[in-house]
Amino acid sequence: MALYEHLRTLLRDEQPVALVTTIAGPGVGAKLLVTPDGTVEGTLGHPELDRIAARDALAELEAGRSGVRRYGPEGQTTPEDLEGSPTVSVFVECWAPSPQMWIFGAVDFTAALAKVAKVLGYRVTVCDAREVFATRRRFPMADEVVVSWPGPLFERRGHSLGKRDAVCILTHDAKFDVPAVQGALATSVGYIGVMGSRKTHTKRLERLADVGVDRPEDLARLMSPIGLDLGARTPEETAVSICAEIIACRTGRRAPSLRDGAGPIHG
């Protein structure tokens, strides 16, 4: 029961982990336990199959998805290689903590964005330095409301942000959003959106340059002005356009209407 014991410990500690189980084909019941640092325990019966399945399990874990995958007995993945050989079906079960969304600025758009983010499964943190605005009563849907400047929050917890997480800066106030952008860029967060008109964006770039944030690869990470071009007007519509952009950034899609394309819908 060594594998189960390890899984149980990781689940109890809220640690991300993927369990790969052969459910059909040679070696039913064989297992791999995969953790984000690349540690692999157990075997599916062939080293190459283990390597490929562990690699895919890590990607699924990153996306927080569980599902069935099929391989050849030696880890083959392409249909031609699979022809004529028995297929190994594995169930990849992933336990990942909820992705985080940090929203800076306690404004009307924040409440709407926090609501939509909760529907999508985010753990939502609202942060503003102004004690009168950053209250639980105004943002009951948020998982936490932090009264703080951005810098200290990033220093304390920025390391917890990863590819699945999002930082949305809705302040439109240079003295708040410049340190928020700086803080976000210092993390490996997957999405950084900054609200404001194109004019505000241009001015913000100048202020960022003043504090030394001017590397093109850093500025390329900023989605600013924030959101997809849906013609959104209300805070709720804007929240949908922001969340839709976050999804498109994660999947690498350009986000036109499905009707107007021809490729596969999933994948």
Partner: peptide
């Protein structure tokens, strides 16, 4: 027993 796959409308997700 674990749900590994659903087709169409299913009440619970894989896992």
């Amino acid at each position: 027993a674990r749900v590994v796959d659903i087709e169409g409308s299913g009440p619970r997700d894989p896992g």
